[in-house]
Design a protein around this nucleic acid. Structure first.
Length: 489
RNA sequence: GCGGGAGUAGCUCAGUGGUAGAGCAUCACGUUGCCAACGUGAAGGUCGCGGGUUCGAAUCUCGUCUCCCGCUCCA
C-alpha cells in the first residue's frame, strides 16, 4: 500500500476547515489577520492536548501546582520584565534594500559622521533636536523629519527612499477604567507571555501552597503579540495559547534541572504520539540567547514549512524574580529551613504553544493511502487525544440493527465521546470518520444480532482498517485495551 | 513592513464585457448485508469589500482587506 504524508500546509488548512477543526476568525467580514477560531472537532482536540499536558505536569508531579493568572497585569510588570523598553524602538525601512533600521540610531550615526568631519556646530544642533524628538509632533514624525531634513541615507544601499517611522511594540495596549484619558499613564497591556503571571504570584504560592524548592507552577492561558509578520496558519498568531511551567530550583542545581526538563519534555511529545524522527532538540547558541536566559533549547517538529519550534526550554536564572524584587520592593526569596540558607531561586521554564501543538498533531497524523485504486485520507491521531473516540453504525437502516446501535451509543456515551451515524453506505461512514481521526468504529450487523447467545458487533480500526468481532458486554474493555496500546506508525 | 502572486458554493477550481457553473462534500427520500455504490431531489454564491468606467462588470480600472511565496523581524 502506498502512503503519502503531508506535503504542504494548504492541505491541512483545507482539511481543518472542512472537518470543523479550525476556521479563520471573523471570516464573514473578510477575516482578521493571524487570528483563528477552533470549530467543534478542533475544540475537542485542543482540549484533549491541553488536558494531556496538564495531567503530565500537575497530576504526575506532587511538587507542581497550577495557577490561572489574569491576562491584565499591573503595567509595572512589563517594565520589570523588560518588555516595555525592549520593544518600543522607532524603526524605519529602506525601500530599496528592504532593510530595517532604528530611526534614532540612524540620526546618531549621522551626528558621529558630522563630528568626524569637523562640523561640531551642526552636530550639536542635530543632537539637541534628537534629544527633544517627540516633543514637537510626536516621536515618529520628529525622527522622520530629522532624517528627511538632513538627507540621511541608508548605510548599506546609500538610498534615500525611506518609509515612515513606526514603533513596533509587540504588546497590545488598551485603557483601564471608565475615566481613562487614553494617555500612556492609564495604559494596560494584554500579556505577551503567561510567564510573568507565575513570577508575580511566586510569593503567594510560597506563602500558601506548602511547597519547598524545588517546585513548579504550571499555567495554561492566552497571550497576545502584535506580530509584524504573522503567517503560516496557527503557527504564528496574534492571539495564542501557551502552556507553561516555571520550575524553581536552588542556584547551582539549575544546569542539571535544565537538562532533566529538556529530556522530560521531549518524552512528553513522544507520549503524545508524535513520531520520533519528526522531533529534535535545538540548543540556542550562547550569542543568541534572550536577555534573561543562561541557556535555552527548542523542541522542534518538522512541519511542512520545515523544522520549527513547538516548545522552548529556558534557564531563566534569577532574572525575573530579581527584577520583580527590584521593581516591587517585595522580597522574592526562599529560605531553606534545613540548610538554613536564603536565596533567590533560579527558574527553569518549559513553554509550549498549544496551537503549535495542535498543528503538529494534525500534520503528524495526516496520511493519504492508496486503497484499491482509491485514495483514503486519514488522521492517525493518538486515540487518547482524538476528538471523537467511537463511531457507532447500524450496517443498514433496519430497526433490529438501529435499536442495538442506539443502545450501545447510550451505554458508551458515559465513557467516550461517541457519534451515531446511519447515513450513506457503511464504507462511506468509515471514511468520514477516518478524516476526523476517529480511532474506532462499531458496526451492528445481522450476524451479530441473529446468532445464538450474546449479541456481538464488529470494531473496525482506523489505522489498518481491520476488524474484530466483540461481544457487546466487552466493548468498553476492548476499546480501552486498544487505546492504551496504540503506537504511532 | 517591502516585492511578487491570488481571492467565484463548505472544499478544489472553470468561467476575459451580455441569464452564476462543474466535481466532491452536505441534507431529504428510495436503495444499500462491511470500506468514498447508485437513483431522484434539495439547499448553498449581491463572484473578498468599496468606489469608478460602461446600456451592461465575476471579467476593465482605482482603493482597501485577507491569504500564499520570498525578504525582513522574532521574547
Amino acid at each position: 500500500m502506498s502512503v503519502t504524508e503531508l506535503k504542504n500546509l494548504d492541505t491541512i488548512v483545507s482539511l481543518a476547515k472542512a472537518r470543523s477543526f479550525i476556521y479563520q476568525s471573523s471570516e464573514i467580514y473578510g477575516g482578521l489577520g493571524a487570528v483563528y477560531d477552533y470549530g467543534p472537532l478542533g475544540t475537542e482536540l485542543k482540549r484533549n492536548i491541553r488536558d494531556f499536558w496538564w495531567k503530565a505536569m500537575t497530576q504526575y508531579h506532587d511538587n507542581i501546582v497550577g495557577l490561572d493568572a489574569s491576562i491584565f497585569m499591573h503595567p509595572k510588570v512589563w517594565e520589570a520584565s523588560g518588555h516595555v523598553d525592549g520593544f518600543n524602538d522607532p524603526m524605519i525601512d529602506d525601500k530599496q534594500s528592504n532593510k530595517r533600521y532604528r530611526a534614532d540610531m540612524l540620526v546618531e550615526g549621522h551626528i558621529a559622521k558630522l563630528r568626524s568631519k569637523d562640523k561640531a556646530d551642526e552636530a550639536d544642533e542635530l543632537q539637541e533636536l534628537l534629544d527633544t524628538a517627540g516633543s514637537r509632533k510626536g516621536l515618529c514624525e520628529d525622527l522622520h523629519e530629522l532624517i528627511m531634513d538632513n538627507e540621511i541615507r541608508a548605510p548599506e544601499s546609500g538610498a534615500f527612499e525611506w518609509t515612515d517611522v513606526r514603533q513596533f511594540n509587540l504588546m497590545f495596549k488598551t485603557q483601564f477604567g471608565a475615566t481613562s484619558s487614553g494617555d500612556d499613564g492609564d495604559a494596560v497591556y494584554l500579556r505577551p507571555e503567561t510567564a510573568q503571571g507565575i513570577f508575580v504570584n511566586f510569593k503567594n504560592v510560597m506563602d500558601t501552597a506548602r511547597q519547598k524548592v524545588p517546585f513548579g507552577i504550571a499555567q495554561v492561558g492566552k497571550a497576545f503579540r502584535n506580530e509584524v509578520v504573522a503567517r503560516q496558519f496557527v503557527f504564528r498568531m496574534r492571539e495564542f495559547e501557551q502552556m507553561e511551567m516555571q520550575y524553581f530550583v536552588e542556584p547551582g542545581t539549575d544546569a542539571e534541572e535544565y537538562e532533566k526538563w529538556l529530556n522530560k519534555r521531549l518524552e512528553w511529545h513522544k507520549a503524545l504520539g508524535i513520531r520520533e524522527h519528526k522531533l529534535r532538540t535545538h540548543p540556542h547558541p550562547e550569542d543568541k540567547l534572550a536577555h534573561y536566559a543562561a541557556s535555552a533549547a527548542d523542541i522542534e517538529y518538522e512541519y511542512p514549512i520545515g523544522w520549527q519550534e513547538v516548545e522552548g526550554i529556558h534557564n531563566r536564572t534569577d532574572f525575573d524574580l530579581t527584577q520583580h524584587h527590584e521593581y516591587s520592593g517585595k522580597k522574592l526569596e526562599y529560605y531553606d529551613q534545613k540548610k538554613q540558607k536564603r536565596y533567590t531561586p533560579y527558574v527553569i521554564e518549559t513553554s509550549i504553544g498549544l496551537d503549535r501543538a495542535v498543528m503538529m498533531v494534525l500534520c503528524d497524523a495526516y496520511r493519504e493511502e492508496e486503497v484499491d485504486g482509491d485514495t483514503r485520507t486519514v488522521l492517525k491521531l493518538n486515540p487518547k487525544i482524538a476528538p471523537t473516540k467511537v463511531g457507532i453504525f447500524p450496517l443498514i437502516k433496519k430497526d433490529k440493527l438501529q435499536d442495538l446501535a442506539h443502545k450501545i451509543e447510550h451505554d458508551l456515551r458515559e465513557d467516550f465521546n461517541v457519534l451515531y451515524d446511519e447515513s450513506g453506505s457503511i464504507g462511506k461512514r468509515y471514511r468520514r470518520q477516518d478524516e476526523a481521526g476517529t480511532p474506532f468504529c462499531i458496526t451492528v450487523d445481522f450476524d451479530g444480532v441473529e446468532s445464538e447467545g450474546e449479541d456481538t458487533v464488529t470494531i473496525r480500526y482506523r489505522d489498518d482498517m481491520t476488524q474484530d468481532r466483540v461481544p457487546v458486554s466487552r466493548l468498553r474493555e476492548a476499546i480501552n485495551d486498544k487505546m492504551n496500546s496504540w503506537q504511532p506508525e
